[in-house]
């Protein structure tokens, strides 16, 4: 099992063949254990752009509005702009080329799944994180996207529709897909 995956890994990342041979023979017996399916499920909170980890549930902006008013508006403002302690959750369209740049979910963020993942992981920060239900996170994400004029008020956000939302600035990142080339020589000011 391990040797099979190592063979193709050596193709993918160019491991030296001697390292492959060594790895095949060096297993560290009695060190570490297999996690249970529940452990993996409990820990695995990350949602990527494909949305494949998104849990069951759904929500609309309409459902999100009262939750937002109760749990978020204090820090982010009733209109998502004039909060105390939290950043603006909309605005700044057309400012990316100016000195007074404003980067918000609407003007800047390239992925709707990032909004879901961040709210689920981190909001509200007080008194403790992780208090929202998945339904609430869908509804709040829908509410914020709708207030940014990215989706309609009655559009249902769920595991299928959310990853398909086209964010206005998705084309705004260079390169379009992130790359890493280990030995590349990079010119001044590049990344």
């Amino acid at each position: 099992m391990v040797s099979r995956s190592f063979k193709h890994l050596s193709l993918v990342v160019g491991l030296l063949s001697c390292a492959t041979a060594f790895a095949q023979s060096a297993k560290y017996s009695g060190v570490g254990r297999a996690p249970s399916a529940t452990e993996i499920k409990d820990w695995d909170i990350s949602v990527g752009p494909s949305g494949k980890e998104l849990p069951p549930g759904s929500g609309t902006a309409k459902q999100g509005a009262p939750i937002y008013a109760a749990k978020c508006a204090g820090c982010h403002g009733v209109d998502l702009m004039d909060g105390k302690g939290g950043p603006r959750l909309r605005g700044g369209e057309g400012t990316l080329t100016s000195l007074r740049i404003e980067r918000s979910i609407g003007s800047y963020w390239g992925f709707a799944t990032t909004v879901w993942d961040f709210i689920n992981r981190d909001m509200p920060p007080t008194p403790v994180r992780g208090t929202l239900t998945h339904e609430e996170v869908y509804a709040l994400t829908a509410f914020i996207l709708s207030k940014n004029n990215i989706i309609k008020e009655d559009e249902v956000m769920d595991a299928k529709s959310l990853p398909r939302v086209k964010m206005p600035n998705r084309e705004g990142y260079v390169p379009f897909n992130p790359v890493y080339k280990k030995d590349a020589v990079r010119p001044h000011g590049s990344y």
């Binding site: 990350s46 949602v47 990527g48 752009p49 980067r103 800047y108 963020w109 390239g110 992925f111 799944t113 990032t114 993942d117 961040f118 990142y173 992130p178």
Partner: peptide, 9 residues
């Protein structure tokens, strides 16, 4: 890449 807030924002 998982496009976390640290990455896209």
């Amino acid at each position: 890449p998982y496009m976390t807030k640290a990455e896209v924002a």
